[in-house]
Design a protein around this nucleic acid. Structure first.
Length: 295
DNA sequence: CTCGATCCCTGGACGC
DNA sequence: TGCGTCCAGGGATCGA
């Protein structure tokens, strides 16, 4: 499940591997994850991939102009890997993997292939004002954002802090794994409301999030199911997960069994001891659960 | 503004 | 071995 560190890893690999390559041709399989497949077929052949960047969980393949005298603005191919997407250059001689939906022939003789079994990804060719507007939909990059802005985006919000971390309009790039790991490190319960966080907690969350993301990038991301980078190499950060996917296992800090609950519609792993449960409104405490067993 | 529900989609886990 | 069933999960969308 590619989040910021995994996408960063893939983007760096692609920058190294395919920057400067020209797209000679494109062929599409299933296209229901592509904004405008006909535009891709029309616009991409002949264009050069100038560089590859990460933007939140997107990769931006920045494209050169149609021709030397063209004055069209910035143009880019946006690629979101969704849950199971992979974008990597392969030799033509290698058979296409199952669920290969986009194949671009490159000028160095290889093919840039997009493979995505579940097709939760997204691909779009965007330019000019449309590109600008699309990018503006997203919040701050968690690695670049300063503490004051981070505080402003979290502190007086009524939503649960987990939902805020996952909301790409608040911060771009954080997903379920790194949200849970950061909340554990900062000792904050995922269901706590942003507005109820103490200033010190917001600072701890800010620091925890950046440290965890940076370390995860160094380790080339987390390989949970089958994530591999642009060269086919898995990441190693999954070996450093403290809570994610560890229901029932002891908290690395206090040995209390890790619990899993659903917050903001997502699995959330946390330590019920280290990450204090948000205080409920008075009048309805847990004692009213009498008789209602565990199933 | 925030929430939950629903859908998208396939492979993997599980039960028999 | 081969079914059927359940479920994960980022994001869009809709209704409350």
């Amino acid at each position: 499940m590619p989040e910021l560190p995994e996408v960063e890893t893939v983007a760096r690999g692609l920058q190294r591997e395919i920057a400067g390559q020209k797209i000679l041709s494109i062929s599409l399989g299933k296209t229901d994850f592509i904004d405008n497949p006909d535009v891709l077929e029309r616009e991409l052949p002949g264009r050069t991939i100038v560089r590859v960047e990460r933007y939140g969980k997107f990769m931006l393949l920045r494209l050169g102009p149609v021709n030397a005298s063209a004055v069209n603005g910035e143009t880019a191919l946006l690629v979101h890997l969704g849950m199971t997407g992979a974008l990597m250059p392969r030799p033509v001689s290698e058979p296409h993997a199952k669920h290969t939906h986009v194949v671009m022939a490159l000028s160095d003789g290889r093919e840039l292939r997009y493979v995505d079994p579940r097709r939760f990804g997204r691909m779009a060719y965007l330019d000019g004002e449309v590109l600008t507007q699309e990018l503006q939909r997203f919040g701050a990059d968690p690695l670049d954002v300063g503490l004051p802005e981070f505080e402003r985006r979290i502190q007086r919000r009524k939503a649960r802090v987990k939902a805020l971390l996952l909301d790409q309009r608040v911060l771009r790039g954080v997903g379920n794994i790194y949200a849970d790991e950061s909340l554990w490190k900062a000792r904050i319960h995922p269901a706590q409301l942003g507005a109820r966080l103490k200033p010190a907690q917001v600072r701890q969350l800010y620091s925890a999030l950046q440290k965890i993301l940076q370390k995860a990038i160094l380790l080339r991301g987390s390989s949970i199911s089958d994530f591999v980078d642009a060269g086919g190499v898995p990441g190693e950060y999954q070996q450093h997960h403290r809570v994610y996917g560890r229901e029932g296992k002891p908290c690395p800090r206090c040995k209390t069994p890790i619990r899993r609950i659903v917050v903001a519609g997502r699995s959330s792993y946390f330590c019920p001891n280290c990450q204090a449960s948000p205080r409920r409104k008075s009048g309805r405490r847990k004692k009213s659960r009498r008789g209602r067993g565990k199933a």
